[in-house]
Design a protein around this nucleic acid. Structure first.
Length: 103
DNA sequence: GCTGTGACTTACC
DNA sequence: TGGTAAGCCACAG
């Protein structure tokens, strides 16, 4: 069911802890979405009830139309963004990977 | 079944 | 280091 994937994406996004952020690609990967754009599409539909402000692009820059709001909300959660970019290497929420070794 | 669009990604300048 | 351009995958009409 597409709804399952839809719900899955919501779950992953909702699982992102405060003060942390994730990229569309990561959400798509974790949620099993076939494409990161689907994540954005889903957020555009039901993101109203989700911490969409924690979702950033691969380079740490949020969507242009939401950048202001996102940066403001992230800042309120303790995520200090450098102008328009957020330090993914610092705030990027990485789901526990099977590696367990390096990284 | 085909075309258009996109809250993306990666590569190049 | 930063901005711009093209590409790709999937969904909706």
């Amino acid at each position: 069911m597409d709804e399952e994937l839809h719900e899955r994406v919501r779950a992953v996004i909702g699982d992102v802890p405060p003060g942390k952020v994730a990229t569309y690609g990561d959400i798509a990967n974790l949620a099993g979405a076939p494409s990161p754009r689907l994540v954005g599409a889903i957020l555009a539909e039901d993101g109203s009830d989700l911490p969409w402000h924690r979702i950033l692009r691969a380079n740490g820059t949020p969507a242009p139309h939401l950048a202001q709001e996102q940066l403001a909300r992230l800042r309120a959660e303790g995520v200090l963004a450098d102008g328009q970019k957020v330090d993914l290497r610092v705030y990027r929420w990485q789901q526990e990977e099977p590696e367990g070794g390096l990284w």
